[in-house]
Simulated assay, not measured.
Amino acid sequence: MKKLLIASAILMAAPFAAQAGANFVEGDKIFGGDAELGATMTTGNTETTSVKARLDMKHELGNWENQYLLEALYKEDTGEVTGKRYYGLIQADYKFDEKSYTFVNGNHEIDPFTGFDSKSTVSAGYGHKFIDTGKTLFNIEVGPGFQYKRLDNESAAVAGYDTEDSWVAHGVVNYEQQITDSSKFKQMFVADYGDSLEGRSETSITANIIGALAMKFAVIVRYNSEPLDDKKSTDTETNMTLLYAF
């Protein structure tokens, strides 16, 4: 944990060091985001509950663009919890110009069904928007990071240790395309490569229903090249949610 705090301090300082020799661009403060919610509940002979919630917010101020993301997934089948995941992310981007920026982010995930009580990652690096036309966005982020994991009691007893940590190479590839005036396609890949390769792919299509209300269909794939002994390397998640933009 001490290594994680040291790494966090080093990586968090990166954008501020970049800002030291630059001036903020005066401009309006911009804040917005979207909230998602999807739920399924059945009673009677079959009793199931499934809830997916997500809150994604962005704040722009001068050269800074900050993102705050919260996600929650909960599944229950006949009184037994079959899925539970909580995820939070904070990212700050400092823009050098319209195309280039430096970033720093930290995220924390709780997913007991992977055999880990929690996983935390901090990273910093350089980002570049290769295409940004208003209708099409393609950007890549790369940089170093540090990852810290805590095993649950059962997995720790089998493995003989209760924590894992490693430096990682962090990368993000993001593509967004406005299909029509009321629909958008997004594809994002996130990867952390250290002692193992961990990746996340999210493919989604969003279509407006009325006003700020939209329907979103998403397929999420998570991959770990070295899962714990009794776990699978790939998890998939398919969601249909309502999205409200604000």
Rank of each mutant, 00 (worst) to 15 (best):
N224F: 03
A53H: 08
S196N: 10
F130P: 05
S183T: 09
E60T: 11
N174E: 01
D230C: 02
K58C: 03
L228Y: 08
K129C: 06
N45L: 07
K2L: 09
Q91A: 14
Y175I: 00
E47R: 12
K129F: 11
S196V: 05
D132P: 09
Q91F: 07
K135L: 08
K186G: 04
D230F: 13
Y126K: 02
A22N: 08
A157R: 14
T203Q: 06
Y94A: 09
T234Q: 07
K119G: 00
S8T: 15
V173C: 00
K99H: 10
G143P: 07
D111L: 08
D34H: 14
K52W: 13
G38Q: 13
V172F: 02
F113C: 05
Y101P: 01
D230Y: 12
S196L: 10
L11C: 06
N63F: 02
I110H: 13
G62H: 04
R200I: 00
Y148W: 11
T43L: 01
P144E: 12
E76D: 11
E164T: 03
G145N: 09
L151M: 04
A17M: 08
K29M: 05
N153S: 12
F217T: 05
G143D: 03
D132Q: 13
D34Y: 15
G199V: 01
I220P: 01
K216L: 06
D117W: 06
Y244I: 09
T102V: 15
V190K: 01
G194K: 12
A9T: 07
E154T: 13
V168T: 10
S123R: 07
G106K: 03
L242K: 12
K184Y: 11
L70Q: 14
A214E: 07
K129I: 02
D235W: 04
T102K: 04
K52N: 15
G79R: 08
V104F: 15
L73D: 15
D152W: 13
D229F: 09
F138D: 12
A156V: 03
V190T: 09
E60W: 09
A214D: 13
V190C: 00
G127M: 13
L89Y: 08
V221H: 02
D235L: 08
M240P: 00
M1Q: 11
K29W: 06
A245D: 08
Y244M: 09
I220L: 13
N23L: 15
T163F: 02
A35N: 02
G44W: 06
S233V: 08
L228H: 10
E198K: 10
A214Y: 07
V219A: 10
I131C: 02
D162F: 07
Q19V: 10
E141G: 00
G21V: 07
E36N: 06
Y193L: 08
E109R: 09
M1F: 08
G27W: 09
G125N: 11
Y193W: 12
A207W: 14
L55R: 04
G143A: 03
A159V: 02
I131Q: 06
A7S: 12
L73A: 13
I179L: 15
F130K: 06
Y94C: 01
I140H: 01
A157E: 15
T136W: 06
G127T: 03
G143C: 02
N63R: 15
H59D: 12
D235R: 07
T40G: 03
N153K: 14
G21L: 15
